[in-house]
Design a binder for these strands. Structure first.
Lengths: 113, 113
DNA sequence: CCAGTTCGCAACTCACGGGTTGCAGGTGAA
DNA sequence: TTCACCTGCAACCCGTGAGTTGCGAACTGG
């Protein structure tokens, strides 16, 4: 469990950037219809190309999917990988809690100071 | 909910690096006694100073705590902020699911629950 | 006291990723 | 058809952060 699984790793790498986090939330807020890069760029102060790059990173991590509608490329949220990353986070915390419990038990019969 | 809360943001920024993820897991695996930077560096192929920097980043995010024991500086896992990040991840997925549910309801009114 | 660790600070290098700009190619609508 | 719009590709700039190295200070044990 030392190293997170590949899927979770990719998600955490992708979400390591603040712009990407906000972008992911925006795509999610766009609902099932999704959002285009130009739409997202209009509401922000960065160029469309920068948004496209971020969306490609999110897509590589499996967090967004792209579909061509007419001449538009609409991105929609793909929430499944989020669960993997979340699971790893909680697993680290859970392992810690388990260790604490074992420690408490072992020290209970040997009072130190 | 568009922007993740500051605490979760800091955690995700810190965990955006693979070395830091592995380091966090190692510190967690060290248990309540914690681990020193030199110990962690001995098992890895990077310098002690690099490890120290990573631990400082993790500490800034509240993910590890430092305590001086003799002349050693031992780092231990601080699992609380992990929950914040995990909560944000699941909240994004949950918001998506809610939107899907509302969409399904509005498109087909006669669907049984 | 002296030697051996171990830590912390600071300066430095360097690759990488976020961002921009320019341009060509399709595609929908008038 | 023609025009306007949206997209994709490529080249480029530049800041930042990951990593190294060197050194002085502080603590520990013989």
């Amino acid at each position: 469990m030392a190293a997170p699984p590949a899927r979770a790793s990719a998600v955490l790498d992708a979400l390591g950037d603040a712009t990407r986090r906000e972008l992911l939330a925006a795509v999610g807020a766009a609902g099932a219809e999704g959002a285009t890069a130009t739409e997202l760029a209009a509401e922000r102060s960065i160029s469309r190309q920068a948004i496209v790059k971020h969306l490609q990173v999110l897509a590589a991590a499996g967090l967004v999917g792209a579909a061509k509608v007419g001449r538009e490329q609409r991105y929609r949220l793909e929430p499944a990988p989020l669960a993997d990353a979340s699971a790893w986070l909680t697993s680290v915390g859970a392992a810690w809690d388990r260790r604490l419990a074992r420690l408490a038990e072992s020290t209970s019969r040997r009072t130190a100071p």
